[in-house]
């Protein structure tokens, strides 16, 4: 589903350039749960951002179902195909949980009523109750926010979930729940789930683990 070919990425700073990725090659298939791990600064998050189409590789290419990302409308790709779950949740602070989940659907011109109905269903599926609908992110716990963030990722209907340290800010009980949700999405609903993590427990449960070091990828 996703193929990374000789991908390199250089951060162009004001005073210096940093080579974050060096000729990375890997392949991700639908219906599987992948973990990408490695020490801080090894290039994990950069790889995830490139997979999310937030930027293009400095060298090499990323293929989505055989099409190079460079030739795609990457905004549309993020709206319809790939969704990102962040460590710090990145929910809109002034939107309620329900509105946050509805947002990607409304972007796809789904009617407000349908979007609200779907959002409520998704919030229920990830284990949150009705009381969270009208809560603003600041009123929710970290685990609740991360669940809402996952519900938002599912809302658009894309089949790729990219998660950057989704359990990083959670306690162990919440961590287990989130991993379980991710695994289910991959194995039961056919999503491609890629998780960036430092957590060995998450890696243990993954179908495949990629280890990164100094911008290079090792299986």
């Amino acid at each position: 589903m996703l193929e990374v070919r000789d991908v390199g990425y250089i951060y162009q700073g004001k005073y210096q350039s940093i080579e974050a990725l060096k000729r990375v090659n890997c392949h991700f298939a639908a219906g599987k749960f992948y973990a990408v791990t490695g020490p801080s600064g090894s290039g994990k998050s950069t790889l995830l951002s490139l997979l999310a189409g937030l930027d293009l590789p400095t060298s090499g290419e990323i293929l989505v179902e055989g099409c190079t990302m460079a030739a795609m409308d990457r905004d549309k790709y993020r709206r319809e195909v790939a969704s990102v779950v962040y460590q710090s949740f990145n929910l809109f602070p002034l939107l309620t949980a329900l509105e946050n989940v509805m947002y990607p659907m409304e972007l796809l011109h789904v009617s407000k009523a349908t979007a609200a109905e779907t959002a409520k269903r998704l919030i229920g599926e990830i284990g949150l109750g009705e009381k969270t609908y009208q809560q603003f992110p600041v009123m929710m716990s970290g685990g609740e926010q991360q669940r809402v963030s996952i519900a938002r990722a599912l809302a658009a209907g894309g089949k790729i979930i990219l998660a950057d340290e989704p359990t990083g800010n959670l306690d162990s009980a919440n961590e287990e729940n989130i991993v379980k949700i991710m695994k289910n999405l991959a194995h039961e609903k056919g999503y491609l789930v890629i998780v960036i993590t430092h957590n060995p427990n998450v890696c243990e449960q993954a179908d495949a683990v990629y280890r990164m070091r100094d911008g290079e990828l090792r299986t």
Binding site: A52, D75, Y77, R78, N90, F92, R152
Partner: peptide
């Protein structure tokens, strides 16, 4: 700015 970044990550051009 973070709000804009989130919008962009969700596919708003």
């Amino acid at each position: 700015r973070p709000e804009i970044a989130i919008m962009r990550s969700l596919g708003v051009s």
